[in-house]
Amino acid sequence: MPIPSITATRKALMASPGKAFDLSARDPGDRSLFDDKEMAETSLKKDAAVINELKDRMYAEGKRSLLVILQGMDTAGKSGTIKGVFSDTTPLGMEVKAFKAPSSNELARDYLWRVHNAVPAKGHIGIFDRSHYEDVLVVKVREFVPAEAIEQRYGQINAFEKHLTENGVTIVKCMLNVGYEEQGVRLAERLEEPHKRWKFNPADLDDRKRWPDFMSAYETAVNRCSTRHAPWYVIPSDSRTRRNAMIARLVRGALEDMNLEWPGSKYKPGDFDIG
């Protein structure tokens, strides 16, 4: 079975804008794109190298940027995705932002303020580990704001993302869809393996008890905010390697669609005596 094309990967993973999306129909363990793990590893390695080259072109051009949004339940693999997909990417022109609970300064402003402030500069790739979608996910499930405010936010988020895309920012939104059973295994690993123990947070167990509410919130967010300018891709994430390979295909495709070229120069060989 050959490595799936970028077009086939998009088609299989996209939550089609304007069409009803059923999260329960998306298998977190789906291996239809990458049945063979070795093929996924090969694809990831190739894409990671190309992503680095295209990132350098975008940085040199300095006109456009790419924003990769990674959203998912605890243990879905957001940090692991960053490490895997961008394993060959040099730090120059890279920005990573992990959104934690807002500070008092951030709470004193509108909920999109801290997000807009973290949008990557022109020529850069920005990666959001969690994002503005926390404000229609955990904020909704835990009822931190009234339901009426949550309802308004879907349209506000769509308008915000449309504004970004109209101003040179390409957005790739990935929901890392990990299964309930697999999450349980990974949470246990965080206690059993010393190098992962620092990640364990008892609050994660509370969120796990609210799993149906979170799945409902995710389904609504994807339904309401998968748009033509910024569609959602739902990534089967029970397999770490396959998850990374699929997202690498999407990132590479987004960069290739920009048709990036090395910028020209007024200088040419022979203009200077290098000595």
Rank of each mutant, 00 (worst) to 15 (best):
V85A: 07
V85D: 07
F86W: 02
S87A: 15
S87G: 10
D88Y: 07
D88H: 11
T89C: 09
T89K: 05
G93S: 04
M94N: 01
M94I: 07
E95R: 15
V96C: 09
K97W: 04
K97A: 11
P102D: 02
N105P: 09
E106F: 03
E106D: 11
L107H: 13
L107V: 13
D110E: 09
Y111G: 00
Y111W: 09
L112I: 05
L112C: 02
L112D: 02
W113F: 09
R114F: 00
V115R: 03
H116E: 07
P120C: 07
H124W: 07
G126A: 04
F128E: 01
D129P: 05
R130F: 00
R130W: 01
V136T: 03
L137E: 08
L137G: 00
V139Y: 03
K140E: 03
V141A: 00
V141P: 01
E143L: 09
F144Q: 11
P146S: 08
A147V: 14
A147M: 13
R153K: 00
Y154I: 11
Y154A: 10
F160S: 08
L164K: 09
L164S: 09
T165V: 15
N167T: 13
V172L: 13
N177S: 13
V178E: 04
V178L: 04
E182W: 00
Q183K: 05
L187C: 11
A188S: 14
A188H: 12
E189Y: 11
